[in-house]
C-alpha cells in the first residue's frame, strides 16, 4: 500500500520533471474520445475536407483563446475580444481598400490590423492597471465601445475588400493545410515558448498566483498585466485578418459575436484556472479543438443549432467540475 503510494509519487514527480505538462492530459483524453465517437457516429467525419474545415474554423477562435490564456493566467479576463474582431476588421478592410497596389495594401493592412489590435488591448490594460478598474468591468465596457465604433465607422454595413490578393490569405493553402491553421500552430508554438520558457512567462504565473509576492519579488506587476492585454489584442488582430480575408469582407454586426465566450471556454476546458497562476497553451489549443469537434459533430448529426449552446455549456461545466475535484 505504502509502496504503491511511494511509487505513485515518484512517477508523478518524474512526469513533472520530464517537462511534460500534466494538466493537459485530461483535455487530450477528452479530445481523443470525442474523435473516436465522432468517427463512429458519422462516416464523413474523417473525410479530409471535413477535418481541414474543422481546423480552419477552430483557428479563428483558437488564436484569440491563446491571447486570452495570458490574460487569464494573470488572473484577469477579457470580454472585449469579440467586439475587437469586428473593429479591427473594419480598420483592416478600410486601409486595404485605400491602396491600388494589392501587395502594398496587404502588407500595410496586415501590419495595421495587428497594431490596432494591440492598441485596443493596450486600452484595456491601461484601464485595468492605471485606471484600477477590475478586468471584468473594464472589458465589459470596451466590449460595448469597440462594437459600437465598428458599427459607426462602417455605417453598420458589410465592408467588402477590393484587394485581389487579400482573400488568398484566409482561403489559401500551404503544404495542404489552410493558412489560418498554419498561423494558429505557429502562434501556439511561440506562445508556448513565451509562457513556459521565458522570464516573462514565469513572472506572469507569479503575478497571477499572488500579486503581492510578485511585487515583493521586484516584479513589475502592472507592466506584466498590461502586456497580457496587449498580447490578447494582437492575437485578436491576427484572428481578424484570417476571418476577414477568408470572407473577403467584414460584417461589423456579426463578426466575432460570442468569440469571447468561445475563447474563455477553450481556455477553461484546456485546464487553465480562472483564478490565475498556472496555465498551458497546449491545453487551450486542445480546448479550442474540442469545441470545434463538438460543433462539427452536432452539425453532421443534424442536431438543432439551437441545442448546440447547451452541449457547449455542458462541456464547460464538466471540465470545470473535473478541475475542481482534482484540486481538492
Amino acid at each position: 500500500m505504502n509502496q504503491a503510494r511511494l511509487a505513485g509519487a515518484r512517477l508523478s514527480d518524474r512526469l513533472r520533471s520530464s517537462g511534460l505538462d500534466f494538466s493537459i492530459l485530461a483535455p487530450l483524453i477528452a479530445l481523443v474520445v470525442l474523435l473516436v465517437i465522432s468517427s463512429l457516429a458519422s462516416e464523413y467525419f474523417l473525410d479530409l475536407r471535413n477535418l481541414t474545415n474543422i481546423a480552419r474554423q477552430v483557428s479563428y477562435t483558437g488564436i484569440i483563446a491563446i491571447g486570452v490564456t495570458f490574460v487569464i493566467i494573470a488572473a484577469g479576463i477579457d470580454l472585449s475580444v469579440g467586439s475587437m474582431v469586428a473593429l479591427v476588421g473594419v480598420v483592416l478592410v478600410y486601409i486595404i481598400n485605400q491602396f491600388a497596389d494589392p501587395v502594398q495594401g496587404v502588407i500595410i493592412g496586415l501590419a495595421m490590423a495587428v497594431l490596432s489590435g494591440a492598441l485596443f488591448g493596450l486600452v484595456n490594460g491601461a484601464l485595468v492597471t492605471w485606471g484600477r478598474i477590475t478586468p471584468f468591468i473594464a472589458t465589459l465596457a470596451t466590449m460595448s465601445i469597440y462594437r459600437s465604433l465598428a458599427l459607426y465607422f462602417s455605417d453598420a454595413g458589410e465592408m467588402v475588400s477590393t484587394n485581389s490578393l487579400f482573400p488568398e490569405i484566409g482561403g489559401g493553402y500551404l503544404l495542404g493545410l489552410p493558412i489560418p491553421v498554419w498561423t494558429f500552430l505557429i502562434i501556439a508554438v511561440l506562445a508556448h515558448i513565451l509562457l513556459a520558457h521565458t522570464a516573462f512567462g514565469r513572472h506572469l504565473c507569479a503575478v497571477g498566483s499572488n500579486a503581492q509576492v510578485a511585487r515583493y519579488s521586484g516584479i513589475r506587476v502592472q507592466r506584466i498585466i498590461l502586456t497580457t492585454f496587449v498580447i490578447a489584442g494582437a492575437c485578436v488582430g491576427i484572428s481578424s485578418i484570417m476571418l476577414a480575408s477568408r470572407l473577403n469582407s467584414i460584417s461589423p454586426s456579426d463578426a466575432g459575436v460570442f468569440y469571447e465566450l468561445d475563447a474563455i471556454a477553450a481556455v477553461v476546458i484546456g485546464g487553465t484556472a480562472l483564478s490565475g497562476g498556472r496555465g498551458s497553451i497546449w491545453g487551450t489549443v486542445l480546448g479550442a479543438l474540442i469545441l470545434g469537434v463538438i460543433n462539427n459533430m452536432l452539425n453532421m448529426l443534424g442536431v438543432s443549432p439551437y441545442l448546440q449552446g447547451l452541449v457547449k455549456g455542458g462541456v464547460i461545466l464538466v471540465a470545470v467540475l473535473m478541475q475542481y475535484k482534482q484540486s481538492r
Binding site: 498566483s209 515583493y216 497562476g277
Partner: peptide, 21 residues
C-alpha cells in the same frame, strides 16, 4: 505565504524568482 513565496510554484521556481535573469 502572503508576500514571500508563490505557493503553487516549485522549489526551483521559487528559489530563482529574484535571480531569473
Amino acid at each position: 505565504q502572503g508576500k514571500g513565496l508563490v505557493m503553487n510554484f516549485s522549489l526551483t521556481e521559487n528559489i530563482t524568482l529574484l535571480s531569473l535573469r
